[in-house]
Amino acid sequence: MHLTDLLLVEDHDADVMLVQEAVASAGVDVAVHVVRDGVEALSFLRQEGMYARCPDVQLVLLDANTPRMNACEVLSELRADDTTRDLPVVVFSSSARLADIHGCLEEGASGYIVKPNDFPGFMAIIHELLMDWQRAVTRSGRHAGRL
Rank of each mutant, 00 (worst) to 15 (best):
V23Q: 00
A31I: 10
L7D: 03
E128K: 09
Q20G: 03
V137Q: 07
V114H: 09
R146W: 03
L18D: 06
D86K: 11
V137S: 08
V74W: 00
S76T: 08
Q58L: 04
A31R: 15
R139K: 10
R53W: 05
V114I: 13
V57G: 04
A99H: 10
G27L: 04
V89Y: 03
L45H: 11
A144P: 04
E48V: 14
V137E: 10
K115L: 02
G103R: 01
V28A: 12
R139A: 15
E128G: 11
D5S: 10
D5E: 15
I101E: 01
L105I: 12
A64G: 11
Y112W: 11
A31D: 14
V30G: 07
C104I: 04
A144S: 12
L42N: 02
P120R: 03
S140N: 15
V9E: 02
E40L: 00
S43L: 05
G103M: 13
L18Y: 06
L18Q: 14
D5T: 05
A26T: 00
E77M: 13
A14H: 06
T66Q: 01
R46E: 12
M1K: 06
V39M: 01
E10H: 14
C54R: 13
N65M: 14
R146F: 14
D56H: 06
G38I: 00
G108R: 02
A124I: 06
T66F: 06
V30L: 14
G121T: 14
A24T: 03
D86E: 07
E21V: 15
V91D: 01
R85E: 05
L62T: 12
I101K: 05
G145C: 01
A124W: 12
D5C: 01
R53T: 12
A96W: 10
